[in-house]
């Protein structure tokens, strides 16, 4: 049994009678980068707030490092760094002073401030006021706050929100190095699969407050069902013809998609015999994005 950094058992949370999280059971292995995916409003932030003790679950249990937060809140939070949505910073203080606040509470050494500033590449902005920082710098300082002290788990809620492409790449590279270089487990939420598929080892998918998938990235890859992509001269007639013959076919962006890949020859023959020109007929696999869409049944960017 792998050691678990986070484990929840059927946690639920309701706001004003509306369920936000329904029976979510998370298993986050130590040393993994766990991507917690779901469209906006799926319940990711609510789950994260419950993990950090900011909200109490109505039902279910949470353990972090095998400890119950109701009895070991201090010990758990000393080992858990977090960045929830936008970084919480004091704009009138310098980067160092912002880090000094958690440093004192965590009783970490003064040199730790320099260590985390170096990790996030802000060592030259040490004495600059945060109100002069760009959004990307603030996000990196937020990550530095989360890394301060002896953190073994990082909980990051939409860490690339508001970042430009360069900032996203930087953040991705930072997250990727955390388990390997610093031995930190990362639990990361996002509504963008493409953003996390390059950094995550494990994935949990949330839709309308419920877990719809949990496993490794390779297990998710296996769910990419193959399909036939057909480009023809008359898509509407071809779709009607193939559907009438009993095949599951749908029109997507001017071409057809059929689910029965074994019927490639029969489909080709049927179309040609009906006088429809076939320009392209090939077996393809669904992208992870399509798998995500299918599972969450929601719009993602």
């Amino acid at each position: 049994m792998p050691e678990l950094a986070i484990s929840t058992t059927a946690i639920s949370k309701t706001f004003d009678g509306k369920p936000a999280v329904r029976g979510v059971s998370l298993r986050v292995e130590t040393g993994s980068v766990y991507a917690f995916l779901g469209p906006n409003g799926a319940g990711k932030s609510t789950t994260i707030r419950m993990l950090l003790g900011l909200l109490r679950p109505d039902q279910g249990d949470i353990t972090l490092f095998g400890l119950d937060p109701r009895q070991h809140r201090g010990e758990i939070l000393a080992r858990t760094g977090s960045l929830v949505e936008s970084p919480s910073l004091y704009a009138h203080l310098t980067a160092r002073e912002n880090l000094e606040i958690p440093r004192r509470i965590l009783d970490a050494s003064r040199s730790d401030i320099d260590r985390v500033l170096k990790i996030v590449g802000l060592e030259n902005a040490r004495e600059s006021l945060v109100k002069t920082f760009s959004l990307g710098m603030k996000q990196r300082l937020g990550l530095a706050l989360a890394l301060l002290g002896n953190r073994q788990l990082l909980i990051l809620d939409e860490p690339t929100n508001g970042l430009d492409p360069a900032g996203i790449l930087e953040m991705r590279s930072l997250i990727r190095q955390l388990p390997t270089e610093h031995g930190i487990t990362v639990f990361l939420s996002s509504h963008l699969l493409t953003e996390v598929e390059q950094v995550a080892t494990h994935v949990g998918m949330l839709s309308q407050g419920e877990m719809v998938f949990q496993g490794t990235v390779s297990e998710l890859e296996q769910m990419r069902r193959p399909f036939l992509r057909i480009v023809v001269s008359e898509p509407e007639s071809a779709c009607a013809l193939l559907t009438a013959k009993g095949w599951e076919v749908r029109a997507v962006d001017g071409h057809l998609v059929a689910s029965d890949v074994k019927a490639v020859a029969a489909i080709n023959r049927t179309l040609v015999q009906a006088g429809i020109d076939v320009h392209h007929l090939a077996t393809e696999s669904a992208s992870l994005e399509e798998v995500f869409l299918r599972m969450t049944r929601a719009e993602v960017r």
Partner: peptide, 15 residues
């Protein structure tokens, strides 16, 4: 309140 700092302050290990 300004930067919704409560969520990070209360996620620190201080009672």
């Amino acid at each position: 309140n300004a930067d919704k700092n409560w969520k990070s302050l209360l996620a620190l290990p201080a009672p």
